[in-house]
Amino acid sequence: MDNYLTLPGWVLAVFQSCLYIALAPLLVGWVRKVKARLQNRRGAPLFQAYRDLYKLLAKEARVAHTASPLFRAAPYIVFTATWMAAATVPLLVVDLPTAAIADIIVLVGLLALARVFLALAGMDVGTAFGGMGASREMLIGALAEPAMLMAVFTLAMTAHSTNLSSVIDYHLVDGFVLRPSYLFALGGLILVAVAESGRIPIDNPTTHLELTMIHEAMLLEYSGRHLALMEWSAQIKLLLYGTLIANVFFPWGIGRGFGAAALGLGLAAVLAKLAALGAVLAVGETVLAKMRLFRAPEFLNLALLLSLLGLLSHVILEVGA
């Protein structure tokens, strides 16, 4: 416990959390750019997402007459919860105090908190689209959350810890081991990440058709800084899942001390891994089409099955008695 709670640790934790919100729009911009290139377009500049946020923050916020106080509180709660969830995932170095405050189950809980408030905000004004989006988001969340928990339990049972820092540490010490369970957990987690961050084939972040919306349908009534916070937290969520996949399954390069060299190497490594993952996501979104809503449960059942097989193959193939 004490080795986590040092002053440089806290400083680095704050720095890393700020890095999360600073990098989040960049990843989205990168995915959009790669996607545009794949579609033979030039695409918006890499930093367009920052400009969008800045523009939204400067605009006035419009709130419906029928909205309750919850509507105005929700963007702050969603943003804070998502940010805190992100802060628990090691980005540059391991052994930060944030990992001790909240383990991987708390991370899932914080994301669920954000989702609940997002759905409630969608239902608050009392429009048909908001309720529709909330209902769908909760369906996807209900099926994705157990799949995600199963996937992380596979990690936790291998490393005998639900503390993300310990999990990553364990793998760095163990070196390169081919684990069938990790393969399945990785598959399951990727499917969950796609579903939870509202990407194709579950949801289309660029759609303009209200009837096919999930995430966007809940934000229809938001404007100005409220909308900016909501968009920003969606971007943080994407970065969170990307970092989780990149740093847990491919932990090499992450810093294990608080020196400048370790930090620099960690930053370079995580940027490279995220760029690769972003490119994969862009390719996936280019070749796949959005599914009908009722195909989504099949997609998530596959995620659940993969995670479950991950657990079982851990028990059957890797432990032995």
Binding site: G175, V177, L178, R179, P180, F184, L306, L309, L317, E318
Partner: peptide
Amino acid sequence: LSLLPLLQQLVLVLAAIVLF
């Protein structure tokens, strides 16, 4: 698992995918 040679780990992975 980490004490097994890499090729045997590979067998395990392939067998797990067969099951999948």
